[in-house]
Design a protein around this nucleic acid. Structure first.
Lengths: 133, 133
DNA sequence: ATAATTGCTTTCAAAATTGAAGCAAAATGT
DNA sequence: ACATTTTGCTTCAATTTTGAAAGCAATTAT
C-alpha cells in the first residue's frame, strides 16, 4: 500500500514525496502564521494558487493528517482549516527556509520577512515555540 | 529580471520556487552526506532519478550557485560536484525533513535513518556542524 | 426575491516529468 | 592497435501535473 507512495525508505525523500511541490508548504505557512484559515484566505494569498490546486492540496494534507477541516460556527458554507501536531511539526522546515531565503535571496525579500528572519536568528527556539503553540 | 522567477517576496515561497520539487533536495542530500559526487553517483541513488531530470537539476543548482562542477583530476570524462556555502546552508532544512519524516513516517523509514535521526535529536547543532563543514 | 459569496469542480491547453533509447568522447581491456 | 565499456549527458514520445478560466450549488446578505 505504501509501495506506490514512497520512492525509498529515506525520510528526506519520503517527506519530499508528500511536500515536494511549490504549494503545499505555503498552505502550512499560512496556517502557522494565522492559526486558522478558510479556502478563501488561502486563495487570496499573494502567490495566487489556482483553486483547483488549492482544493487538492487541502485534501491531501487532510488525508495525511497534517490539518483538520471543521465547520464554521455560524456560516455553513465556510470551513475552518487548522494544523494538527503533524502539521505544526513542519514549522522547523519552514523556519529554515526563511533563514535560507533571507540569507541568499536578500535583495528581493520583503522588509517584513527580513525582520522576522532577524528574530529567528536571534532566538530560533523561542520563535519556533511561539509558532507551534 | 526576477519578475518571472519568484511568485512573491516571501522567503519561503521564493525558496520553494527554487527547491520545491521532488528531486533537487535529494541532490543536496547526497552531497551533504558524501562531500562530492559524480553524475553516476547521483544517478545510482535509491530513488532512481531519470538522467534527464538529473542533468537539468544539476544545471539549475550550478546556475544558482548552490554547487560547483569541476574536472576529475585524472579522468576527463568525469565531473565532480560539490556544494558551495549556499548549498551547505540548506543542511538545516534537510535535517528538519529527516526529523519530521522519522517522527511521522516511522513505520517505513530505514533503521539507518532512524539512527541518524536519533543522533540529530540528541545533538542537532553538532550534527549540523559536521554536515556543513 | 434577488444578488453576492463561498468552496469548491470541471475543462482543457500548456508545461513538466518519466522512461527509454541514443550518442560522442574518453577510458579500459586484449 | 582495436574493440568494448564507461561516463555524462541529450533526445524523444508518452504520460502526468499544472494553471487559468469558467461553472455551479448551497448558503448568506440585501
Amino acid at each position: 500500500m505504501c509501495e506506490k507512495k514512497f520512492r525509498s525508505t529515506c525520510p528526506i525523500s519520503s517527506a519530499l514525496d508528500l511536500f515536494g511541490d511549490k504549494w503545499t508548504l505555503l498552505i502550512v505557512r499560512d496556517l502557522l502564521y494565522h492559526g486558522s484559515r478558510t479556502f478563501k484566505d488561502f486563495y487570496q494569498a499573494e502567490e495566487k494558487i489556482p483553486s483547483s490546486r488549492l482544493a487538492d492540496r487541502l485534501k491531501k494534507l487532510e488525508q495525511l493528517g497534517a490539518l483538520t477541516k471543521e465547520n464554521h460556527p455560524t456560516n455553513k458554507k465556510v470551513f475552518i482549516y487548522r494544523l494538527t501536531q503533524k502539521g505544526k511539526d513542519l514549522a522547523p522546515v519552514i523556519v529554515d527556509l526563511i533563514t535560507w531565503g533571507n540569507k541568499h535571496l536578500e535583495e528581493h525579500i520583503s522588509e517584513e520577512s527580513k525582520e522576522f528572519a532577524k528574530r529567528l536568528e536571534e532566538n530560533r527556539e523561542g520563535v519556533l515555540k511561539e509558532l507551534m503553540k
